Amino acid sequence: MTRFEVIVDGPPVSQQARNRGKGNRLQDWKKTVRQEAEKYWSSEQKIATGLVMLQITYFYDSDQMDVDNIVKPIQDAIKGLAYIDDKQVSDLVVRKRNLSGNFKVENMTSILAEGFDRRKQFLYIVVIDAPDQEVLT
């Protein structure tokens, strides 16, 4: 089973930053995500070759971002590390949670706990094997 977790200090940079003349900022963000992911990568882990689910949770203190703009730079940054190509991402869950808000965390991993211990906004990124490809209506 594939499971890869990483914490990246936020705030994230939107894919749309490229369209606002802030291309370097977007590239710098992708490099940051990749560098952080490499720190969490274990030599024992194998790159996913099948379909995966990408879960991103942005724990923020002041919200300036739409969740749909967070995804693509992160997908690009971890391509070739957690999975071969972002075409393997068949399922996607993206959330925002206010650090000052009222939310519940179940089954907290040590990596997620590390994010909360930093006491500032961060992204929690998880790659796991995709669930069954059944479509429920």
Rank of each mutant, 00 (worst) to 15 (best):
V52E: 00
V71H: 03
Q64S: 14
Q45T: 08
S62V: 13
I70F: 04
T49E: 07
S62H: 14
I70V: 15
T57Y: 00
M65I: 13
L54Y: 00
I56N: 01
Y60E: 02
I70D: 02
V71Y: 02
S62K: 15
V71Q: 06
I56Y: 00
V67C: 10
I56W: 01
V52Y: 00
T49S: 08
P73I: 03
A48S: 13
I47P: 08
Q45Y: 07
T49R: 09
A48Y: 02
I74H: 05
D66M: 09
N69Y: 12
V67K: 14
M53I: 07
F59D: 05
Q64P: 10
I74G: 05
Q55M: 06
A48R: 02
Q64E: 13
L51E: 09
L54E: 01
V67A: 11
I70Y: 03
Q64L: 13
D63C: 14
Q55A: 08
L51K: 14
I74Y: 04
V52F: 00
I70H: 03
Q64G: 12
Y58I: 01
A48G: 05
Q64D: 13
I47E: 10
I56T: 00
V52T: 05
K46H: 15
T57C: 06
K72E: 08
V71R: 04
Y60I: 02
L51M: 09
N69I: 08
I56R: 02
M53D: 06
Q75A: 11
M53C: 10
I47T: 14
I47D: 05
L54A: 02
T57L: 01
V52Q: 01
D68N: 11
D63T: 12
M53Y: 07
Y60A: 03
M65Y: 08
V71P: 02
Y60V: 03
D68T: 10
I74D: 04
I74M: 07
S62L: 11
T57I: 06
Q75K: 15
Q64Y: 15
T57N: 04
D61S: 14
P73H: 06
N69K: 15
D68G: 09
D63S: 14
Q75G: 10
F59V: 06
I47W: 05
D66L: 09
L51S: 09
G50C: 01
K46P: 06
